[in-house]
Simulated scan of single mutants.
Amino acid sequence: MKNFLAILGTNSDHSTNRLLLQFMQRHFVEQANIEIFEIKNIPAFNKPEVKQAPHEVQKLTDKMREADGVIISSPEYNHSVPAILKSTLEWVSYTNQALVDKPVMLTGASYGKLGSSRAQSHLRQILDSPELKARIMPSSEFLIGYSLQAFDDNGQLKDQAKIEELEQIFKDFIQFVEITNQLVNASDSHQKKATNFSWETH
């Protein structure tokens, strides 16, 4: 069984993205172990003189390295991701590049009609940067619009069609993780480049 780390991409105490990840955790319990990680305690990135990660960042990156794959669920703020998610990814890229070659699945729930489509597009660009170089699952996005009405009182998704869509994407992600990790194990060139990467020389 695969072990996935699910990152809640917001510091909100009342996020429908948390509901989405909790639903996935329950719904796919027979297929994968999904651990949800809250980033609300991670400090704002400030580019320290020494590339030493704060405790919460180190805790996150250790879990990233141990996981078979990473799921990121983010709302959309001003056509992009929340500042705390971008800041968290800046910590990862500056300190130890734990997402290099890591299979990543993107999901998102937002209050508006379009869900988090523009935020996911922006997030793909960020994750594809030289400092992160994650392996984002292609040709897939799971979006929940009008997310305040999407869950019942028990945290269950109401729309059966959305559940079936999520089931297919999750099945694809498991296959993507297997293929990606086979390729990565065959070549560690990206990991070597990441180890030597420096913001100051790019």
Rank of each mutant, 00 (worst) to 15 (best):
L157N: 04
L123E: 00
Q52N: 13
P138G: 04
I136H: 01
A150N: 10
R135Y: 09
K102T: 13
T107P: 07
Q125H: 08
G108A: 08
K133V: 08
L143F: 00
Q97L: 09
V100Q: 05
L60M: 03
D62S: 01
A53E: 13
D68V: 11
R65F: 12
E131G: 14
D152H: 08
Q160W: 01
N96W: 13
N41W: 07
L106R: 03
E76D: 04
G145H: 00
R124M: 06
V104L: 12
G145N: 02
E76L: 01
Q160D: 11
K51M: 13
A98V: 09
H122N: 10
Q52D: 10
G115E: 01
K133F: 12
V81G: 09
V50C: 08
S74P: 01
S121D: 07
A134H: 07
G69I: 09
I42C: 09
A53T: 04
D101Y: 09
E90I: 11
I136D: 00
N41A: 09
A161T: 10
F151H: 09
K59H: 12
T88C: 14
G112K: 05
L60Y: 00
I136V: 15
T107Q: 14
L143N: 02
S139N: 08
K86M: 15
D152A: 12
E131L: 12
M137E: 07
D62T: 06
V50Y: 10
K158L: 14
K133G: 05
V100D: 03
D128K: 07
I39G: 12
K59G: 07
E66N: 15
R135M: 13
T61L: 06
P54W: 08
S129F: 10
L148H: 06
K133W: 13
I39Q: 06
L127A: 01
L123I: 03
S87T: 13
S73W: 00
L132I: 14
K51P: 11
K51L: 12
L148I: 04
P75K: 00
T95A: 14
H55D: 14
E76S: 02
R118S: 12
D62H: 03
S110D: 12
Q160K: 03
T61R: 03
